[in-house]
Structure formats: C-alpha cells, structure tokens
C-alpha cells in the first residue's frame, strides 16, 4: 500500500495532477475495416497462413471437415475440446479423438501426450492468417498449445477481415473469459543463427478448416 501511494504520488507530481482527476478523453480509436467479400477473405486468409507454413482448408460442410480431420489424424491420439460445434460436426466421435475427461489433471496429461489438439476458433483473421481463441469451460488453453499439431475448425461466418474488425466486434475481449489468444501460424523460433525452426514450444503444425455451414448446427 505504501508503494502504491508513493508511486501514484510521484506520477501525479510528475504530471502536475491532483488525486482523483479523471483521464482526458483518449484520441479516437483507429480501426479500419476493408470491404472484402467472403471469397477475398478466404483467399487472403489461406495465402497468409500458408506463407507461415500452416495449412488452410475450405470445407464444404461438416462432412467434408470431418473427412479432412479423419484423414489427418488417422486414428492417432487426439484431444478435442468440448465446444458444441465439434460434437455437432461429428469430430469428437472420430476414432482416436477424446473430448471427455474425468478431471482437470486427466485433461492436462491427455493434452501433453496427444498427437493432435482439436479446437474451434470463434474467428479467423483474413489479413494475417490468424485465429482468435478464447479460454472457456468447454475449450481449455492447453489443447491448442501442448500437442505437436493444432487443428482448428472455424465456421465460415467467423472468417473476418482482420484485427480491426475483431476489436470492433469485440471491443472488450475479456468480459467472459480469462484469456484471448491470437494464433498466427505454427510455433517458431529463429534464436539460433536466425535459422527458422518450427514447433519449439507450441505446435509445429497447424491446420485451419473453415467450415461452410451447409448443415444445421446444433
């Protein structure tokens, strides 16, 4: 408490303010949203993600998405989040995919040993090839970071132009969640001789499946 008052006092002295003064209005936020049709958004998203070494897939409906995931995982161990869409699209019932766990500890160790982590993402950002993932009771943080491969499914309606649109749609991003993560391509480092290596701590491989909703979502 002493440190708090001391620091605030020094800040106010430095600025010539008295205590309890409200902030002046900030300069208007600068958000620019380009008018891109879905086709343009998809083209840009795929190009940006693939430039980073990620894989972007446009699936015509849930069946196509499920087929892509099934082929990719090939029955190997995968942890899927409990996001309702994954169950509705039939992802959680694929062979090798687990999405129910006794307790948090089991979930954590499953994430640490699985080959794939399967999540949804609320939004995908076209201009940078990014995903926006919120931590939630259904979708934990570790599923998308511990396994060596991250598979994310995004409804086509979530493919937006970019960060500016995201922050326009969600100006206060932490009202209902403790964490929002933007994921832009596979984990990478260039710390040794600036040589690019993928998958240092997070997934070295990322697949983003944009699902065109031809079927009814539950």
């Amino acid at each position: 408490m002493i440190a708090r008052e001391h620091i605030l006092h020094k800040v106010r002295t430095a600025l010539g303010h008295s205590a309890g003064r409200a902030a002046a209005p900030p300069p208007p936020a600068r958000l620019r949203i380009p008018a891109w049709e879905f086709g343009e958004r998809w083209k840009r998203f795929a190009a940006a993600l693939e430039k980073l070494g990620g894989k972007a897939v446009l699936a015509a409906g849930a069946a196509a998405a499920r087929q892509y995931v099934a082929t990719l995982t090939g029955g190997r161990p995968a942890v899927a989040s409990a996001a309702p869409a994954l169950a509705a699209w039939g992802i959680t019932s694929l062979p090798g995919v687990r999405s129910e766990f006794r307790d948090d500890a089991e979930l954590r160790s499953a994430c640490a040993s699985a080959d794939f982590g399967i999540t949804t993402a609320e939004y995908a950002l076209a201009d940078t090839g990014s995903l926006a993932l919120w931590a939630s009771p259904e979708q934990t943080r570790l599923i998308s970071v511990l396994p060596p491969v991250h598979v994310a499914l995004v409804p086509a309606s979530g493919l937006i132009t970019g960060l500016d649109e995201l922050l326009t749609l969600v100006p206060r991003p932490l009202e209902n969640s403790s964490a929002l993560v933007l994921v832009t391509g596979p984990s990478r480092t260039a710390d040794i001789e600036q040589i690019l290596v993928r998958g240092v701590h997070g997934p070295g491989e990322i697949h983003v499946i944009v699902v065109e909703e031809r079927e009814e979502r539950s």
Binding site: A48, L52, D104, L107, R108, D127, T128, S130, A135, S136, P137, T140, R141, L142, L163, P173, L174, N176, S177, S178, A179, L180, V181, L182, V183, T184, G185, P186, S187, R188, A190, G202
Partner: peptide, 24 residues
C-alpha cells in the same frame, strides 16, 4: 521487431481462470 504482421502468439490475459475454466 521481426518483420511479422503479427507474431505467432498474442495472449490477452486478465485474472485467474474463470468459473468453469479447466486450466489457466
């Protein structure tokens, strides 16, 4: 910094895990 339009991960975090969240 590195010529990346966005870095690979941008985490925006506040508070401990919320009610029902299973990690964090």
């Amino acid at each position: 910094a590195t010529g990346q339009p966005l870095t690979v991960y941008t985490s925006i975090l506040s508070g401990p895990r919320r009610a029902g969240e299973r990690d964090g």
